[in-house]
Simulated scan of single mutants.
Amino acid sequence: MNRRRLRAALLATALTGTLAGCGIRSTEVPTDFGPGPSRVPCVMSGSSIASQSTSGVPVQVFLVCAAQLVTVDRSVRIPAEKATSDRVRIAQALLDELAHTPSAPEKQAGFATDVRGGTVVSGPAEGDPEDALRFSSSPEDLSAFALAQIVCTFADSAAAGDDREVIMGGPGDDPLRRYECTQAVRQRPGTVAPPTETVK
């Protein structure tokens, strides 16, 4: 028994010396291979999607999840004949949906919104392009996430022009700007602003 213990001690000493000679320091701390996969799925189960579906026109809105923009299925109460032709009504309905607090399944999946309620959408003022949308407050006052959510949601709907760009401005003489939703905006809405071009 004593010989076995002595042999084990000699083997441990030799191994320690070998590691030290190779420049490898022994440690009990596990090696860090980078961050683990995110626990936020950003995807709802089929049963969750079905449970929150209601009567109305199906639409998609962009919510924030894991610092990115991700589409979520919703429905809005718009007359079917207005769902593709009444740009102002569509924009208002989508804006209201964005301002709604995410449902329990959406929250569980990690979704959130930075859009606040109370904004009213109107059509073009005199001299504006026919596809312009006027807000009751300037879009430039929105947070980076809220602006990206609105631009990308509108761009994927009948609220946008034929080129899938969105012309928005505030009330009165507030400048109109043409906004575009790009892949970079969807991936990094907090740091990449939607490309803009002043219209008037």
Rank of each mutant, 00 (worst) to 15 (best):
M1Y: 06
N2T: 06
C181F: 09
P175T: 13
A148N: 06
E197L: 14
P35I: 11
Y179W: 15
D163I: 03
Q60S: 15
R178F: 03
Q183H: 13
T54K: 12
T182E: 09
V64H: 08
H100V: 13
D96P: 00
R89M: 13
A109V: 02
A193Y: 08
S85H: 12
D86N: 10
L98G: 06
A155H: 08
S26V: 06
R177L: 09
T27V: 02
S103V: 11
I49F: 06
P35T: 12
A80G: 04
L147P: 00
G190I: 04
S75C: 06
L95M: 07
D162R: 12
T31K: 11
E165A: 15
A193T: 07
N2S: 12
F62Y: 15
A148C: 08
D173G: 08
R178E: 01
L98D: 09
A14Q: 07
V64F: 09
P194N: 10
I24A: 01
A9Y: 09
P139Q: 05
V61P: 00
P189D: 13
A20F: 03
R74D: 06
F145W: 08
R39C: 03
T119I: 15
L94S: 02
A99L: 02
F111C: 03
L15Q: 11
K200G: 10
S157R: 04
A66R: 11
T84N: 15
L176Y: 08
G161L: 10
T31C: 05
D174C: 01
V61H: 04
P58M: 09
E197A: 15
Q183S: 14
A109K: 02
L98R: 04
T119R: 12
I150G: 01
C181R: 04
V59Q: 10
P105T: 10
P195A: 12
A160L: 04
R4C: 06
R178Y: 01
S157P: 00
I24Y: 02
